[in-house]
Design a protein around this nucleic acid. Structure first.
Lengths: 137, 137
DNA sequence: CTGACATCTGAATAATTGTTCATATGTTGG
DNA sequence: CCAACATATGAACAATTATTCAGATGTCAG
């Protein structure tokens, strides 16, 4: 019985082959997936996240000040900024012996912003009724 | 001398202590940062990204079909889904011996959507009702 | 030029993370 | 009950990634 089963070209059993086909056709290319995973990955580290939120708030900061706001070593900050720079997420302008960094990717800025909005850090745009008298749950 | 320099409580030199203070005060708590990094991290893996975009497009899929759309082994899919389940990103409903998964986090859905929109890939963004795509025939 | 400074970099180590294999759990039909 | 099946899980291994240390580069003041 079980008339709803099928097999794909590799011999794997499928339950809903039609849907699998539709989904497969709609998925982004491997290249796009890799690129997107890269961006999310950059945002997936607490250190880099503190760096980026510092820049989001401070606009432009030098390496030593970023080390202070993020509680990282200057070396770690420099390494992280290099990665972010390589992905065009931040840009640098050097004045004298200082290097001032700023956020330079509107896409990432939006993702950051959307992320922060939903961690309770800012008021969420959610239909969750939180009366101002409400304290603890 | 050196009127523009200062030192924080740990002995580190700062260039713009005022700004550092402002930024430090505005940063999310360590807990919020860790939570947000966690979410971004979940989206930072190509496999999980393919799983989630599959669910975004397909609405509800069982493990074996997800293995087919993502080109992952069923074991890898199961492990990934467990992680996503632990973070409440997907939910499962078991019918018989199958387990059907679907996207269950509006926040993540938005991040995914925003991410996909900006990688040049415009996935057909359907009206939000991806929960019950129950296709009986 | 020289010495102090800010930042950058490479290489090694340490930590985290993904993948696989083997097996466990729970379900269905006979 | 049993065998076939779908999914879940743990532990071992492989791969990736972060952090540190030592030293390099380039800048400024004198």
């Amino acid at each position: 019985m079980a008339a709803r089963e099928a097999v794909d070209e590799c011999g794997v059993k499928l339950v809903d082959p039609d849907k699998v086909d539709v989904v497969r056709a709609a998925l982004p290319s491997d290249h796009d997936i890799a690129e997107l995973a890269d961006v999310f990955s950059l945002l997936g580290d607490p250190g880099r996240l503190r760096l980026l939120t510092s820049l989001l708030e401070g606009g432009e900061l030098c390496v030593c000040d970023l080390a202070a706001t993020t509680a990282m070593s200057e070396s770690a900050v420099s390494h992280a900024l290099r990665l972010l720079r390589a992905h065009r997420v931040v840009s640098v302008s050097r004045r004298g012996r200082m290097a001032y960094y700023r956020l330079d990717d509107a896409h990432v800025r939006m993702l950051l912003d959307l992320g922060l909005t939903h961690t309770g850090h800012t008021i969420a745009v959610h239909p969750e009724r939180t009366a101002h008298a409400q304290k603890d749950q």
